Simulated assay, not measured.
Amino acid sequence: MRRTPARRPTIKDIAQRAGVSESAVSFALNGRPGVSEGTRNRVRRVAAQLGWQPSTAARALSGEGSATIGLVLARPASTLGVESFFLQLVSGVQEVLAARRLGLLFQVVPDLEAECEIYRRWWAERRVDGLLVVDPRTDDPRPALLTELGLPAVVIGAMNTHPGGEENTTSESHLANLWADDAGAMASVVDHLHDLGHRRIVHVAGLPELVHTQRRVNSLRAEAERRGLPEVRSVSTDYSDSEGAAATRRLLTGEHPPTAIVYDNDVLAVAGLAVATERGYRVPDDLSVIAWDDSVLCRSTHPPLTALSRDTTAFGQHAAEQLLAMLDGEAGTRVQDTLPHLLARGSTASPAEPTLG
Rank of each mutant, 00 (worst) to 15 (best):
R2G: 13
R2P: 03
T4Y: 06
R7D: 06
R17Y: 03
G19H: 02
S26K: 09
A28M: 02
N30L: 01
R40T: 08
N41E: 15
R45Q: 15
Q49P: 03
Q53F: 06
L61K: 13
S66F: 01
A67V: 00
G70C: 12
R75N: 08
P76F: 07
S84E: 13
F86I: 12
R100E: 14
R101V: 05
P110N: 11
L112H: 14
L112T: 14
L112F: 05
A114P: 03
E115F: 05
Y119C: 12
W122E: 05
A124G: 11
R126F: 01
V128N: 13
D129N: 08
R137C: 09
D139H: 13
L151Q: 15
P152M: 03
P152C: 09
S171R: 14
S171I: 03
S171H: 12
S171L: 12
S171V: 09
L175E: 09
L178Q: 08
A180R: 12
A187M: 07
S188W: 03
S188A: 15
H192N: 11
L193V: 03
V202C: 13
A205G: 12
E209W: 08
R221P: 01
R233I: 03
S234R: 09
A247M: 14
L251S: 08
T259R: 13
A260E: 11
D266V: 05
L273D: 10
V275K: 14
E278L: 09
R279L: 15
Y281I: 04
I290A: 11
A291F: 04
D294W: 00
S300I: 00
L305R: 00
R310T: 07
T312V: 11
A320W: 01
M326C: 06
G329S: 08
V335M: 05
D337E: 08
G346C: 01
E353N: 08
T355D: 14
G357M: 05
G357C: 04
G357D: 06
